[in-house]
Amino acid sequence: MDKIAVLIPCYNEEKTIEKVVTDAKNALPEAVIYVYDNNSSDHTVELARKAGAVIRYERKQGKGNVIRRMFREIDAQCYIMIDGDDTYPLEYAKEMADKVLKEESDMVVGDRLSSTYYQENKRPFHNMGNSLVKNSINTLFHSEIQDIMTGYRAFSYQFVKSFPVLSKGFEIETEMTIHAVYNNMQVDNVIVNYRDRPEGSVSKLNTYTDGMRVLNTIMKMFRQYKPLAFFTVLALLLTLVSAGFFIPVLIAFLKTGMVDKFPTLIVCGFVELAAIQSIFAGLILHNLGVKERRDFELHLNGIRERFEREMKEKDE
Rank of each mutant, 00 (worst) to 15 (best):
L7W: 10
L7G: 07
C10S: 15
E14R: 12
I17K: 02
E18S: 10
A27R: 02
L28C: 01
A31P: 13
D37V: 01
N38T: 04
S40Y: 13
E46M: 04
A51F: 04
V54L: 12
I55T: 08
G62M: 12
K63Q: 12
V66Q: 06
R72E: 11
I74N: 05
D75M: 02
D85A: 05
D85N: 09
Y88I: 04
A93C: 13
K102G: 06
K102V: 03
E103H: 15
S105D: 05
G110C: 01
R112N: 14
S115A: 15
K122I: 00
P124V: 05
I145V: 11
I148S: 14
I148C: 06
M149E: 14
R153F: 07
R153Q: 13
A154P: 00
S156F: 03
F170P: 05
E171Q: 13
I172D: 13
T177A: 08
H179L: 06
V181K: 06
Y182K: 15
Y182S: 01
V190Y: 07
N193Y: 12
Y194V: 08
K204P: 02
L205N: 00
N206P: 04
T207H: 08
T207C: 12
T209S: 06
G211K: 04
N216E: 15
M219V: 10
P227Q: 11
F230L: 07
F231H: 08
L234R: 15
L234Y: 15
A235R: 04
L236R: 10
L238T: 01
V249E: 12
F253H: 02
L254Y: 06
K255I: 03
G257N: 04
G257H: 09
F262L: 14
P263N: 09
T264A: 08
I266R: 11
C268P: 02
C268R: 13
C268A: 03
V271Q: 14
A275N: 10
A275T: 03
Q277L: 10
S278V: 03
L283Y: 14
V290G: 06
K291M: 07
K291W: 11
R294Q: 03
F296W: 13
H299I: 00
N301M: 15
I303P: 09
R304W: 02
E305T: 09
R306A: 07
F307H: 10
K314R: 14
